[in-house]
Deep mutational scan, measured.
Amino acid sequence: EKIKSDFFELLSNHHLDSQSRWSKVKDKVESDPRYKAVDSSSMREDLFKQYIEKIAKNLDSE
Rank of each mutant, 00 (worst) to 15 (best):
S12W: 03
K28H: 15
I52N: 04
E9L: 06
S31V: 07
S5N: 14
E45S: 05
E1G: 06
Y51I: 00
K28Q: 09
S5A: 14
H14L: 14
I3Q: 08
L47P: 00
E1I: 08
F48P: 03
L16D: 02
F48W: 05
S40G: 11
Q50Y: 06
A37C: 06
S31H: 15
K36M: 10
R21Q: 11
E45M: 06
E53I: 06
Q19S: 13
S42I: 11
K4T: 10
L11G: 01
M43H: 05
E9N: 13
H15C: 09
H14V: 09
D39Y: 08
D17F: 03
V25L: 13
L16V: 15
S18W: 07
S12A: 15
Y35S: 10
V29S: 02
F48Y: 09
H14S: 07
I3C: 00
D27S: 15
L47F: 12
L16W: 04
A56Y: 08
I55L: 14
D17Y: 03
S61Y: 14
S23Q: 07
S61H: 09
R44F: 01
S41H: 14
K28G: 07
K36G: 07
L11W: 00
K24Y: 13
K28I: 14
D27E: 14
E62S: 14
R21C: 10
E30R: 13
V29M: 14
L59V: 15
L16H: 03
K26T: 04
V29C: 10
V29W: 03
H14I: 11
L11M: 05
W22M: 03
F7G: 01
K49S: 11
K57Y: 06
N13C: 12
P33C: 07
E9V: 04
W22C: 00
D17I: 02
D39T: 15
E9G: 04
D6V: 01
Q19T: 15
R44N: 00
D27V: 09
D60V: 10
Q19M: 13
K4I: 12
R34K: 03
L47I: 03
L16N: 02
K49A: 10
F48I: 05
K36Y: 05
S41Q: 14
E45W: 02
V25S: 03
S61L: 08
K24I: 15
H14A: 09
W22P: 00
K26D: 03
K54R: 12
K26R: 10
S41V: 10
D17H: 08
R44T: 03
M43K: 13
R44S: 04
S40T: 10
F8P: 00
S41L: 08
E1A: 07
